[in-house]
């Protein structure tokens, strides 16, 4: 394939950042938007795959912020806003420095935490969301599992979602 299964990111998280003070939780501003890895994967149609989770279920962070939180590339973080919480991968941002700001490419993971408020002008607020980031051991869900866990459209026992088997990386439907 011509496509990398996850974005190329630098590996320069500096834990010995002199000003970094280890914290459990960071208050940051969240921006979402398109990104070429996410775009390519989404429009190719590979949204069920692990690849999509890698390119859209990811928070690009400033290395200093990563140091403060004590996370390195592909560690999991939980992002919590007024509208929901979601677990994504942490990754070093190509566009750093931007301390205090994280970027999650648009997609099902970002949707959970952005604001649907349009302020009467049709467009939700996808950028400039205040949120917190903390390290977590929870898994980043695959797209189908995430949709099931968050929106529960066809789930009969909402409590038992955690125990359900994963929907996997291929379409699941009954053939004729």
């Amino acid at each position: 394939m011509t496509y990398v299964d996850k974005p190329a990111i630098p590996k320069v998280v500096k834990f010995d950042e002199p000003n970094a003070k280890l914290r459990n939780k960071l208050d940051v501003m969240l921006n979402t938007g398109s990104d070429i890895y996410q775009g390519a994967c989404k429009k190719r149609g590979s949204t069920l795959k692990d690849e999509y989770r890698k390119v859209a279920g990811v928070a690009y962070m400033d290395p200093k912020d990563m140091a403060k939180l004590g996370v390195s590339n592909w560690d999991h973080v939980k992002v919590i806003s007024d509208w929901g919480e979601v677990v994504v991968n942490a990754a070093h941002s190509r566009d750093a420095p931007h301390e205090g700001t994280i970027f999650i490419p648009k997609g099902p993971w970002a949707n959970v935490v952005v604001s649907p408020e349009t302020y009467c002008c049709c467009d939700p607020t996808y950028k400039g969301i205040m949120c917190t980031v903390e390290k977590t051991d929870d898994d980043v869900l695959l797209m189908a599992d995430l949709m099931r866990a968050v929106y529960k459209k066809y789930v009969k026992d909402e409590e038992g979602i955690k125990d359900l088997a994963t929907l996997g990386e291929m379409p699941v439907y009954k053939k004729l």
């Binding site: 149609g45 949707n111 649907p116 939700p124 929106y151």
Partner: peptide
Amino acid sequence: AHYPGGAIKHLAEIPVIQVDIHWGP
């Protein structure tokens, strides 16, 4: 894939018809 969760929540309560080429969110 592109609506805020707050809007998708209502889609979870009503019938949705999809015309598309790929299996997506």
